[in-house]
């Protein structure tokens, strides 16, 4: 069981990296990867929001929507799923913002600009949506231990995705800090060369495939 949880974490960080495999969260990936310390701050903020959002959307999806549709009342609210997801994420970001402003004003000043950006970071909504694809949602008839087991899987998937994002953005920031001193063709400066570097990084990450097999 522990091995399986560890594999979920490793897969999310290295093999199915949200940025380099699923192309999620590319806007901050290109926008905030100039300096390593900024990139790390962004990564940590995203990891936190992602963990909270993944566990909360899992709970709403499985303990409310799914429960209602299979219980005797049989109300199917599946069509509200995406709206609920995006509001949970937006709410979490607001909470984090208020919390930081009240208790860690120093951190808030540094994160300030990133926080509203996180809501529209597709890596977070993507993480909530991929929980379904990965099969971490409950299926009919599951009860008791299975519920907490699946919740643990979804939670670790959230953490793994956040760490994967942090890893990818920090690596890119490290490369870009050096890229500034290199002679890049004029038309490729900025976004274009960053994307080409990302291509090489993605190729390197492909080498991790098969760890889970």
């Amino acid at each position: 069981m522990t091995v399986e949880l560890l594999l979920i974490l490793l897969t999310a960080v290295l093999i199915n990296n949200p940025v380099l495999y699923y192309f999620l969260g590319l806007c901050p990936y290109l926008g905030v990867s100039n300096k390593v310390d900024m990139a790390f701050g962004m990564g940590m903020a995203v990891t936190f929001v992602m963990t909270v959002a993944a566990s909360m959307t899992w709970a709403i999806n499985n303990l409310v929507i799914f429960y209602l549709s299979t219980s005797s009342i049989a109300i199917d609210l599946g069509f509200l799923r995406y709206i609920i997801f995006i509001f949970v994420i937006a709410g979490t970001v607001q909470l984090v913002e208020m919390f930081l402003r009240k208790f860690f004003p120093h951190l808030y000043d540094r994160f300030g600009i990133f926080l509203p950006l996180i809501t529209t970071n597709c890596a977070i909504l993507g993480c909530c949506l991929w929980i379904d694809v990965k099969g971490f949602n409950l299926v009919a008839g599951e009860q008791g231990v299975a519920v907490s087991w699946k919740f643990a899987q979804a939670l670790l998937f959230g953490i793994g995705n956040g760490l994967g994002f942090t890893l990818a953005i920090c690596l890119m920031a490290g490369i870009r800090e050096r890229l500034r001193f290199s002679d890049v063709p004029r038309d490729f400066r900025g976004v274009a060369i960053t994307l080409i570097v990302a291509a090489i990084l993605a190729m390197a990450f492909m080498g991790f495939s098969g760890i889970g097999g």
């Binding site: 093999i15 099969g135 495939s209 098969g210 097999g213």
Partner: peptide, 9 residues
Amino acid sequence: AKGKGFGGD
């Protein structure tokens, strides 16, 4: 039936 492959499930 489901299981682990090279790239994922």
